[in-house]
Design a protein around this nucleic acid. Structure first.
Lengths: 171, 171
DNA sequence: GGGCGCATGTAATGAGTTACATGATTGA
DNA sequence: TCAATCATGTAACTCATTACATGCGCCC
C-alpha cells in the first residue's frame, strides 16, 4: 500500500500528470521508492477506478495530451487512513544479505573476508551518495537522515564482523 | 534469488524432504526469511526441473510418501555462485515507513507524535523478541546479531525524532 | 467421532517489472 | 538526419501469496 500512499500524497500537494509524477519520483525520491513508470501509470488507472483521484485531459500546442490528476474527497480520506496506518506500525525489514551470511561457513575464511570487503565498498558508495546529497526541504530531509543513519549502522556492523573475521584468519 | 540460495544451502547441509524444510524455516529462520510453505514446494519443483536438486521418494509405514531432496553437483556449483553474488554486494533496503514520513506534515504535530510512539512500541516488541532468543550456533548467531543491531539503530533514530518533535510541540 | 499432525500439492490471484509501441517535437 | 524529450500505455512475464484440496493415522 505504500505506493498508493505515495501517489495520493504527491497529488494531494498539487495536481500533476503522470509524466510529471514519474519525473519527480525518479529525480527526487530514489532513496524512498523504486516505483517504475509503467507501474505508476497502472496505479493511477486503479486510483481513478476506485474514485480516489479524478483527471482532466489537457493539451499544450501540439504536445501529447496529458492527464492531469486531482485528489478527490474520497482520495483524501483514503490518504489519511493509509498515512496513519503507515506511521503507526513498524514494518520489519528483510535483509537478503542475511541468507548469504547464514552459509558463510561454506567459504574459506580468506575468500569470505574479501567478499565482505567488496560488500562494504558498495555500502560505502551508497553512504557517500547520501552524504553528497544537498539539504532538502521539510520531511524529505527526515527520510535522508533516516537513510544515512541506517547505512551508517550497517557499515559499522559490517566493519565489526570483518574485523572479527580478520583476527580469526590471522591467528 | 535469495530463496533459491536458502533452499540450496539447507539441502547442502543435509538431505531433507519438503515438510522438514518448511518446519525448519518456520521454527528457526523467521528472522531471516518469510518464505511460505507452498512457495517452498513450488521452488523445490523448479530446482528439480533445473537439475539443481534431485529427489528420492521414500515412505515410512503408512505415512504419506516423502520426497527427500538432494543437492546435485550442478546445484552445488549454483549454490557457490549465488552465495558469492549475495555476499559481495550490499542490497539496498527500502523502508515502507519512509513514505509515511514524507507526508508527516499532513498531520497535526500531536497526533504525529502519538503515531510515532505507537510505531516505537511495535519496534520495541520486535527488539525484545530478538533479545529473548537463546544463543544459536554458528552463522545464525551472526544473523541474529545483525538484526539486533539494525533494530537498535532504528529505535535510536525513532527516539531521536520523537524527542525533537516533542520539544517542538511543547514550544 | 473430531481434530490435529503429517506431507504434498493445485488454482486463482495479485503485485510489479520488462520490453515494446506510438507519434509528435526539439535540438545538434 | 539522428537522437532525445514528451506522454501515454499494452502485453507478456515473473514471482510470490492465499486459499483450498487430499487422505491417512493417532489420540482423546
Amino acid at each position: 500500500m505504500e505506493r498508493e500512499l505515495l501517489l495520493l500524497g504527491l497529488l494531494r500537494r498539487q495536481d500533476m500528470h503522470g509524466y510529471q509524477l514519474n519525473e519527480f519520483i525518479e529525480r527526487d525520491l530514489t532513496m524512498c521508492t523504486d516505483l517504475k513508470k509503467s507501474t505508476a501509470y497502472f496505479l493511477l488507472d486503479k486510483l481513478v477506478k476506485d474514485e480516489l483521484v479524478s483527471f482532466q485531459q489537457t493539451q499544450e500546442g501540439a504536445r501529447p495530451p496529458r492527464r492531469v490528476y486531482h485528489l478527490t474527497e474520497k482520495g483524501e480520506a483514503e490518504f489519511q487512513r493509509l498515512l496513519r496506518e503507515n506511521l503507526s506500525v513498524y514494518d520489519p525489514v528483510r535483509f537478503p544479505n542475511d541468507i548469504g551470511l547464514l552459509f558463510a561457513d561454506a567459504l574459506p575464511a580468506d575468500e569470505l573476508l574479501r567478499l565482505l570487503q567488496d560488500q562494504r565498498e558498495s555500502l560505502q558508495l551508497a553512504l557517500a551518495a547520501i552524504e553528497a546529497a544537498p539539504p532538502h526541504p521539510g520531511p524529505l530531509q527526515w527520510v535522508i537522515d533516516h537513510r544515512r543513519a541506517h547505512l551508517q549502522s550497517e557499515l559499522d556492523w559490517l566493519t565489526t564482523i570483518i574485523a572479527r573475521l580478520a583476527t580469526e584468519t590471522a591467528s
